[in-house]
Amino acid sequence: MKQVSLKESEYAVKKGKIVRTKQMTKMEKLFEISLPNGEALDHEPGQFVMISIPGVGEAPISVSSSPTSKRSTFELVIRTAGMLTAALHKLDKGDVVGIRGPFGTGFPTQILEGNDLMFVAGGLGIVPLRSLINFVIDNRRDYGKVNILLGCKTPRDMLFGDEVKQWEQRLDVNFHCTVDKSDPAWKGNVGLITSLIPGVNLDSNRTFAVVVGPPIMYKFVIAELLKKKIPERQILLSLERHMKCGVGKCGHCQVGEYYCCQEGPVFTYEQIKGKHEAL
């Protein structure tokens, strides 16, 4: 077997320098990363990158920051779940990781323009959705009514607490939040995220619902959205799948004839409705 080095490859990684970290909860840590020479990641909300530590491995992680916030850095929020993510949690400012991407089809920000939006984020779903929420807030005039529905397990699991407070206080955003299990200090709603949907006042024809959460959440949320008469093509979902390559080859993220890393992770409900194993 002969071996040559390549200038270009789908597997070439860029050096991502960690410029800031923040422990958000016990399990989740935020990493702000810059690419060499201030190069922008140039992602769209909803896209993901492959992050790696040499010798440990590589994993897909959604970009959590909006491309409108800072050009020269981007943010990832990583929950410790396996070997790689545990190793990432040990890294700090100044450390270097490998970055490939951005990959995938993100949220269709142009199609959303002019329409009312209902964001439904369950648990870690807020991590990719924050990218779109902040994109919309930074271009607030271009969109209709904005509803944010946020759900998490307990008040302690809430991510982006400071930002969430700002969303809550904005006059151009309707914000609703619920927790599955409250604690003594919690004064808000208690219950599943589906319980927030019936109360939202919306014009179904011009509303796009954007839903991101754990796999189990989708069918229940979709059922509520359909009760609200939101058209199937206006329900956008970001699907989580196992991924190894990010470039539509390794087969792990297959959903029907789609590769989640290419045609997804964002799909319309119309696209995947009835598809075997999609929801």
Binding site: M1, K2, Q3, V4, S5, L6, K7, E8, S9, Y11, A12, V13, K15, P54, G55, V96, G98
Partner: peptide
């Protein structure tokens, strides 16, 4: 597509990642 195929070599200290192509 060999059962095991090298696609990248790295040197952690040098922070160097080099994409690799294997062929015969």
């Amino acid at each position: 597509m060999p059962q095991k195929e090298k696609i990248l070599e790295f040197d952690k200290k040098k922070q160097d990642w080099t994409p690799i192509l294997e062929y015969s």
